[in-house]
């Protein structure tokens, strides 16, 4: 199991346990975490699964994938250098303990 902590905009934290191959988005949806919508189901057609990777975890999650940058331009909340589409972060063993912060709005 790979533990991921989602920190909502108001600071509240929710822990979830995912498996290899889950994405940060799909895990959030399966756990009913509010701050992630994932409207297009991970097809990179929207930016409603925007998250900010915690500074300590930027190395483990790696750089943005092809096309992600362009979709992030339409994110509802501010985009910074730690912004990712959570549907594009596939969980690996190295991400056990991952912390992501959620934006104020997704739409």
């Amino acid at each position: 199991m790979i533990k991921v902590t989602y920190v909502a905009h108001d600071g509240s934290r929710t822990d979830a346990e995912g498996e290899l191959g889950d994405t940060v988005m799909s895990l959030a949806i399966n756990q009913g975490i509010d701050g992630i919508i994932g409207e297009c189901g991970g097809s990179m057609m929207c930016a409603t699964c925007h998250c900010y990777v915690d500074e300590a975890w930027v190395g483990a999650t790696g750089p943005r994938l092809d096309g992600e940058e362009d979709m992030l331009e339409s994110a509802a909340s501010e985009v910074n250098e730690r912004s990712r589409l959570s549907c594009q972060i596939k969980l690996t063993e190295e991400m056990d303990g991952l912390v992501v912060h959620l934006p104020e709005e997704q739409v």
């Binding site: 096309g67 940058e69 362009d70 979709m71 331009e73």
Partner: peptide, 12 residues
């Protein structure tokens, strides 16, 4: 086709 940048530009 395979061009998210142009697609998003068009949407805006």
């Amino acid at each position: 086709v395979n061009n998210a940048k142009a697609h998003m530009h068009a949407r805006r």
